[in-house]
Design a protein around this nucleic acid. Structure first.
Lengths: 127, 127
DNA sequence: GCATCCTATTCCGTAAATGGAATATATCAA
DNA sequence: TTGATATATTCCATTTACGGAATAGGATGC
């Protein structure tokens, strides 16, 4: 049961390294975006593969599309990636504080406290 | 051919919503971390499922582990998430600039590019 | 009309992740 | 030792994503 559904959230979409590559490549183009054939050359991947990845990225809103002539210009749509950025930012305190002091404090608390499961309420201790 | 390997990079690991839940729950605990049984209660998932997700997170360095008695305390390891945060930050300009000005610039450039067949007014009839 | 270019989509085989259940391992307690 | 607790691991079935090849669709040019 409960498989992953790549077509629903940006985290799934960027899980695939090639799709991150697509985004990184797109990001190097100006606001007008980049047509598929140029992406195909840049990435060195078969065109159907690129198109399929673009379809996934578009499905989750990570890129947007503009048709011009027979080409389709894709460009990065920041909002989706912003969500990822903000999710990760929630964990900022885990890398801004030095790990060593966190570890020390963790071990000190571990020794001194009975067991931290007496309350349902999560604790926030900071230094 | 080229499958995704969940046990190799943090992007794969956080693709799974339940693993993000695990991280979010862990983040609410103090530096000492959280034992598995408490995670099981908090998440309402079967214990083997939680353990398996923790194994994946540990495999990619998103959590670290400290044994104490028969319990194992897991805590968030910031470095892995930091990588995600920094990757997303590379796209910051796509959401800090207003979308409207980006669009305008896109269309201006689209007119100026050497691609043929855009001598007319650019079309805005789709997104 | 027809041919050509650009892109999307379908079909298919394979590899892999997920969850459930049962079991194994490890630690403590009596 | 035996038993209970805490966690990990194995086996299994299901579902899914991925890539490749071929094909379809759509726009342009002749």
């Amino acid at each position: 049961m409960a498989r992953r559904t790549v077509s629903s959230d940006p985290f799934e979409a960027i899980a695939q390294p090639k799709r991150r590559q697509v985004l990184e490549t797109l990001a190097r183009y100006p606001g007008a975006g980049c047509p598929v054939n140029e992406l195909v050359v840049s990435l060195g991947l078969p065109q159907p593969v690129v198109s399929k990845h673009l379809a996934v990225l578009k499905g989750v809103g990570l890129v947007s599309l503009e048709k011009r002539g027979r080409q389709r210009f894709y460009r990065v749509n920041g909002e989706g990636i912003r969500a990822v950025h903000e999710w990760a930012a929630r964990f900022e305190r885990f890398w801004t504080h030095q790990l060593t002091s966190i570890k020390e404090r963790a071990e000190r608390r571990a020794r001194d406290l009975p067991t931290p499961n007496t309350s349902e309420e999560p604790r926030r201790d900071h230094d």
